[in-house]
Design a protein around this nucleic acid. Sequence first.
RNA 1: GCCCAGGUGGUGGAAUCGGUAGACACGAGGGACUUAAAAUCCCUUGCCUUUCAAACGGCGUGCGGGUUCAAUUCCCGCCCUGGGCACCA
Length: 825
Amino acid sequence: MHKKFDHKEIEKKWQEKWKADGLYDLGERDETKEKEYVLVEWPYPSGNLHIGHWYAFAVPDIYVRYQRMQGKQVLYPMGFDAFGLPAENAAIKRNLNPREWTYSNMEYMRSQLDSMGNAFSWDKTTSSTDPEYYKWTQWMFAEFFKNGIAYRGEGIVNWCPGCNTVIANEQVLTDGTCERCGSTIEKKKMPQWMLKITNFADDLIDGLDDLDWPEHIKEAQRNWIGRSKGAEIDFELSVGEKVTVFTTRPDTLFGATYMVLAPEHELVQKHKDSITNWSEVEAYIKTSSQKDEQDRLDTTKEKTGVKLEGITATNPANGEEIPVYIADYVLAGYGTGAIMAVPAHDERDFEFATKFGIDIRPVIMPTKVGGCVTKFAQENKVNANSDTELLTAVQDIIKSSQAAYTLKGRLINSESFDDLTIDEAKGEITEKVGGRMTSTYRLRDWSIGRQRYWGVPIPIVYSPEGEAHPVPKEHLPWTLPEDVDFKPTGEAPLAKSAELKKRTEEIFGEGWTPEVETMDTFVDSSWYFLRYIDNKNDSELSSKETQKTWMPINMYFGGAEHTTMHLLYSRFWQKALHRLGLAEHAEPYKRRANHGMILGPDGNKMSKSKGNVVDPDEQVQNVGADTVKLYLSFMGPYEDNSYPWDPNGVVGLRRFLERVYGLSEHFVDEETPETTSLLHKTIKKVSGDIKEFKFNTAISAMMVFVNHVERTGLSKQSYGTFLKILAPFAPHLTEEIWSNYHDTSIHTERFPKFDEELVKDKEVTIGVQINGKMRGEITLSPEATEAEALNLINLDAKLTAKVNEGGEIKKVIYIPGRILNLIIN
RNA sequence: GCCCAGGUGGUGGAAUCGGUAGACACGAGGGACUUAAAAUCCCUUGCCUUUCAAACGGCGUGCGGGUUCAAUUCCCGCCCUGGGCACCA
């Protein structure tokens, strides 16, 4: 029987009570309890809570409440990542100050967050825009600067020649033009503040080994860092200059028949007087600057390039003179921005050499039939009757330069190195030509300077001689000036602040000037978890003692879109702090789960233009916070997948809660043993599923229990136990029912334990197969013997008939408690 | 293009140390209650053939192969969808 309840009244009542009692505030450390730090990615205060926020914060709250009910002291903090571009855009549009817009958004969102009824530790909140927060962001930057982790370098940016300014990727349209003025965007090298994340590349790879993260996230990070081992080798140019190339295949050096520089390589501009076809070269450089990297690396697109007439290089292995090209498949930012090209053994070089008619010289040859030869033969559609024939056919293809051979073999055409394996040759050839074995990474240093207003000012001032100095600690926070017109003009907004200029001169002296760039907001979110734990500390960013207590984070929930950027940046930040002795731990997050997103009812990403946006406030008004939370948890497993919102689906969960509410009408003095057993099975299933974030099957198990007891009845005591396992999922309603029988909060109760004996099945029904096809079923003890099982077949007329039809039983496969398969004939 | 993930009824999903595919929920159909509707309760519901109905049988987890007594699950080759690709956060 359903029993209606007034969710508005119930939810309001308990939210107020919990707040008044400070039920979820963390308070002082309680040493008698184990600590648990559960973190969710802090939101950007866009002004309105999205259903995605509910998914991100209300569903992990189940896990949080479960941990509390295990008797742990749980920290579940919430704050705001409040700097960023949208505030500036909104401010320009509405003619407001970004600060007003941001702070009113935060206030409104706080009230919306309260409506979730989550167990947030609000006494530990912080915001990236709080001067007491960014004071420490600046202080760490200054420390990084002093220790060489932050430096002034060259970064590649989107330059809009129309607006005369740097623009964000987001503002570049798909056709490569500026969303504001329509000009074609160019890639441009500019001086930038950078962080030396590449110095930590090996640590970032190695650190993954000890983390309890899903393997696919680790794999994505490893690939993002992209370590390749190889060698740097110097080539002499005819203009009297050395070029260093990076190669993973120094063993193929004798086959290098040309070299390629990235169009942006500094030596191209430097020696333009020696290049006789300069106008052609210059035009090519311009075209490349308008392509994005994905285009340049697209292996399906035809390779382009231009020969540098008038310049040649010398192959250091054999002294041969080889041509030099520029081509945009070589990137300035990767390796050394220059490659030696070995068309016989590299797909891209092969394609390029074929197009430009450059020599292709094989230097690696397979000598016996194995995986490599077979694979190459398959790819090149070689058929042969014997191994010898196959090998000869493959060798002929390589000798006649019909395809690039990128696999294993032994060296040929390489003078004294002939006959070495490629692994032996790598070191020996590198040594002979004076090269160095090294690693290079796909990962690039992190460019953090932004020509924007609404961010953390980079705490650097320049002496009259132009030397950069960090702003000393006593002048932090180095506040964001207010007297700034932040409308885009092409100049960094802070450059227009008279106050900032005056402040700098007053403190440092005449002629001193301030840095006018602000920081990338990824910086703000790289350390917020350290501030939460010690959010009122005014002498340190986060004390070592507090870190010892609360770090590392036990569980970090967040979006899949953060896998390679935020998650890697913050790991880097932690490692940098650790190296400087400011962080206790080398890794911030012990365990991680990625969640997907909630799509519109039409299966598309929610967006205003598609009109498929689900408003959580409206849903909460209609069915209540508990129902919305339950529905979001019921849609599917929490990790990885995205789900469309089904407006009908939500009512099923509301019905479930009403049935739970009405269960008191089914009380019996003595419940059946089956009911008790089912309750214990449910406890087991729910606790196991919560730990693995399978909230959907946990809820389904509770539904099965409710369906059962509506028929059989249950004891008052079992009802209480059931309410406790439901409490993390539906905190308001369970508290309401609980309060009818108790004076204390259900949320201070311990999560029920199950009795192993009561969970065991005495009988199971298993399938019976004949020749692997399902033909019936038998019910027996999970410990029954094969003879007992076969006896049951004899007692079953239908199955016996089927068996006799086939003749003699040849083989019996019996897995107790699982399957019986009879093989006949 | 590259990296990561996913593809199961009308829908969301369940079942993976290989062992009865479709738990649970939505929707749909039928019935009860009602003057009526809503709400609630009961029954049916993967598809196909046959049938008054069922039984029996066949097919079925994106596509094509393979391994196995047995494959949604393992292996190989494809197709499609989603996320990320460094200045959105």
